[in-house]
Structure formats: structure tokens, C-alpha cells
């Protein structure tokens, strides 16, 4: 895929200029597409529930292009790729567990009124040590 230079060390892997420019224009296209879809969503009759997945899919497509070609992941050692992608696993774990839990106790938070809590006035008037 990349330029082949016999005389370069094997860890040196220049990406062809054409490919880089191609990726760049694809990214610009996707960006404009995202903005346009978002602006015209109402008139195109896309239900708003779909907007978020669409936006995220487009963003992920862009992320893939950047990772694979700008960041040389396509040609990189698989260990590096796995190491990087595994971080997403932990992020999703973090998001899912907290989302699941906070979803269950939201009502408690919404009914919280600081002024009703016993001891608040005393706490605030307590002189600092």
C-alpha cells in the first residue's frame, strides 16, 4: 500500500502523499455531511431519534480514517493497535456501569432540595478552623 523503498529501514514506512490527501478530502466531505444532515434533519424527515446514531457513525468513520492512515495503524504492529483499542473497552465499561447505576437513582437526586436538608445552615455558619 505504502511507498516501497528498499533502502529504508523496515520500521520506516512513508505513506504516499496521494493517499494522505485522499483521506483528508474524505474527512472534509464527512464533516460537511455531518453538518448538513444536522441542519436539514427536520426538512429531510429524519426522526430525531436517529440523529444521534447517524452523527456518531459519521464521527466513527472519520475516526477510523484518521487512525488507520494518518496514525499509520494500518501498517502498525498489531500489539500497538490492540493496546490502543482496548482503552475503548474500558471507557465503555466505565460509561455502561455508571449509566446503569445512575439511571436507577435519578429520582432521588431530582427530589433533593438543599434547603430542606437538616444541618445545612449550621454547616455554612460554622467558623473555619
Amino acid at each position: 500500500m505504502a511507498d516501497h523503498h528498499d533502502d529504508l529501514p523496515k520500521f520506516c514506512h512513508p505513506v504516499p502523499t496521494k493517499l494522505l490527501f485522499g483521506v483528508f478530502f474524505a474527512l472534509i466531505f464527512l464533516t460537511i455531511l455531518t453538518v448538513v444532515v444536522s441542519a436539514l434533519a427536520g426538512s429531510m424527515g429524519i426522526p430525531s431519534a436517529f440523529m444521534f446514531p447517524i452523527a456518531m457513525t459519521l464521527a466513527t468513520a472519520k475516526a477510523f480514517l484518521v487512525c488507520a492512515f494518518f496514525m499509520h495503524m494500518w501498517w502498525d504492529k498489531s500489539f500497538n493497535v490492540i493496546a490502543f483499542l482496548s482503552s475503548l473497552l474500558f471507557v465503555s465499561l466505565f460509561i455502561c456501569m455508571t449509566l446503569m447505576d445512575t439511571g436507577h437513582y435519578q429520582s432521588t437526586i431530582e427530589s433533593y432540595d438543599v434547603n430542606q436538608m437538616p444541618g445545612v445552615a449550621e454547616l455554612e455558619s460554622e467558623p473555619a478552623e
Binding site: L8, H13, P14, V15, T17, L20, F21, I28, T31, F70
Partner: peptide, 17 residues
């Protein structure tokens, strides 16, 4: 930012060469 990413990638290519 995307453009800066492009120039960065081109910069890496130049350095490699």
C-alpha cells in the same frame, strides 16, 4: 484541525524520507 492533521501526516512522511 483536520487540515493540521493532514500537514502533520505529511510532516511525518517528510521526516521519514
Amino acid at each position: 484541525l483536520l487540515f493540521s492533521s493532514l500537514t502533520m501526516a505529511l510532516g511525518v512522511r517528510s521526516a521519514q524520507l
